[in-house]
Design a protein around this nucleic acid. Structure first.
Lengths: 107, 107
DNA sequence: CCAATGTATTCGGATAGGCGAATAGATGCA
DNA sequence: TGCATCTATTCGCCTATCCGAATACATTGG
């Protein structure tokens, strides 16, 4: 019986999760929900420096979580897959339920 | 108009995602799917040293992703919420679709 | 109490990831 | 071309995380 190795799928999987593991990137993804935005618009909306937003967008792009399209001087970013927001929402619900359980235990 | 700050929810959210952002922890979560296990059983199954498994389990526990129950000498870990696996599966599907898109573009 | 078994933690070193600041690159237009 | 605007990258520093190895802690049974 072989020892199970860490498969490529697990690595990719972890890679995606890791990309979601930063508060600013989560904000960015939610901000892209519904309407594509360009970089400085995101920066203004979220109150982050433009280079910061750009760096985070690169991370998301490398993981295929966002898509880009150049439009003249600006680069428009959009969610690559609406299910990303679904996943985040479910996680948020899981989180909330876990917090509720803890609160109930303490009460 | 105030600049939107990073809310507590986003921090928690990122925290959860970050916990999922490690291949070994993903393996552990899948291994806990269906049946609770105790630490050394997991270590044997996954071919990881026991302290490694234990450390990762602590990370998952802090985020309320797994639950523990002591049973004599052993400590039994279980998934705190089956939706965690659902979320991981959806992410896996999102990932696969993204890979397919890339392949199609290249072809 | 002591030994055996199972689990958790600590330590040190290596690696990765975040940020601000500065700068480089790309595009459009006069 | 030259300038303004928008985006991406680099640099240095700091912090967080991971790992193996060793060790501490907890529980059971003799």
């Amino acid at each position: 019986m072989e020892i199970p190795q860490i498969e490529e799928l697990e690595l990719l999987h972890a890679n995606i999760c890791q990309a979601l593991g930063d508060p600013k990137r989560i904000q960015i993804l939610y901000a892209l929900h519904g309407e594509p935005r360009y970089v400085s618009a995101l920066a203004d909306d979220l109150g982050m420096p433009q280079p910061t937003v750009s760096r985070h967008l690169q991370v998301l792009r490398q993981r295929s979580l966002v898509l880009t399209e150049r439009d003249g001087q600006t680069v428009v970013y959009s969610l690559a897959d609406p299910r990303i927001i679904e996943v985040l929402s479910v996680m948020r619900q899981i989180m909330r339920d876990a917090l509720d359980r803890q609160t109930n235990v303490l009460a």
